[in-house]
Amino acid sequence: MLARKKTVYVGADIITLSDACPRAEAVCVADGRIDCLGSREDVLEYARPGGCEIVDLGGGTLYPGFIDTHSHMSSFSNCLRQVYCGSSLGSIAAVQQALREKAPSIEGEWIVGYGFDDSGIPDKRHMDRHDLDAVSTDRPVLVVHISVHMGYLNSVG
């Protein structure tokens, strides 16, 4: 019988996402799957036959099985420091105004907006450098399209 490589994670607040056992002191992973979880003592006793690697997570938090392969959470966190430019603003002029109003509170050189949707406003057109030059001529301005596959820059940008 082939020995399975086991890794035991300890030293963290382990959130299991299970109503039956919402938190654990340790978790054993074998062949990429959660094999066992519970108290540190019980999990180590379970994992030691055949050997195991022990990883101390230094007081962090572990969400077993939580994988964000498409990075929506990190993208959302970036938006918290940016200017909303979505179609609910109603026009390119309103997007320009939102960028101007928020610019003084934005740290760093760039003024960045997100969510612009040319198809959702009466203007029915994409922005151009002239639209964003009207926002600032000394700081770079970038507005990312709602598709996240294109963006608009002013002359400085």
Rank of each mutant, 00 (worst) to 15 (best):
P64Y: 13
P64N: 04
P64F: 06
P64G: 13
G65W: 02
F66H: 02
F66D: 06
F66R: 05
F66A: 10
I67R: 11
I67S: 08
T69V: 10
T69F: 10
H70V: 05
H70M: 11
H70N: 08
S71L: 08
H72A: 04
H72E: 02
H72D: 00
H72R: 10
M73S: 05
M73N: 08
M73P: 00
M73F: 12
S74G: 01
S75R: 07
S77F: 14
N78W: 08
C79E: 14
C79G: 00
C79M: 15
R81P: 00
R81M: 07
R81T: 09
Q82L: 04
Q82P: 03
Q82W: 15
V83E: 00
V83K: 02
V83C: 08
Y84P: 04
Y84E: 11
Y84R: 07
C85N: 02
C85K: 04
C85M: 03
G86V: 11
S87Y: 01
S88D: 15
S88R: 13
L89T: 06
L89M: 09
G90H: 07
G90V: 15
S91I: 09
S91N: 09
I92L: 02
I92P: 00
I92K: 01
A93T: 03
A93C: 09
A93N: 03
A94M: 05
V95A: 06
V95M: 01
Q96W: 04
Q96F: 05
Q97A: 10
Q97W: 06
A98M: 12
L99E: 05
L99R: 01
E101N: 11
E101V: 07
K102A: 14
K102W: 06
A103C: 01
A103S: 13
P104A: 09
P104D: 05
P104V: 13
S105F: 15
E107I: 06
E107D: 14
E107N: 12
E107F: 10
E107W: 09
G108W: 03
E109G: 12
E109R: 15
W110K: 11
W110N: 07
W110S: 02
W110I: 07
I111P: 00
I111R: 01
V112E: 12
V112K: 02
G113V: 12
G113D: 03
G113Q: 09
G113T: 08
G113A: 13
Y114M: 09
Y114I: 14
Y114P: 04
Y114K: 07
G115F: 01
G115P: 04
G115C: 10
G115Y: 02
F116Q: 05
D117F: 13
D117C: 10
D118H: 14
D118P: 04
D118C: 11
S119F: 12
S119N: 01
S119W: 09
G120N: 07
G120I: 10
I121G: 02
D123Y: 07
D123M: 06
K124A: 13
K124N: 10
R125S: 00
R125N: 07
H126M: 06
M127Q: 11
M127Y: 08
M127R: 04
D128F: 08
D128Q: 05
D128P: 03
D128Y: 15
D128T: 10
H130I: 02
H130F: 07
H130G: 00
H130W: 15
D131Q: 01
D131W: 02
L132P: 00
L132G: 00
D133G: 07
A134E: 13
A134D: 03
A134C: 07
V135D: 02
V135T: 09
V135I: 10
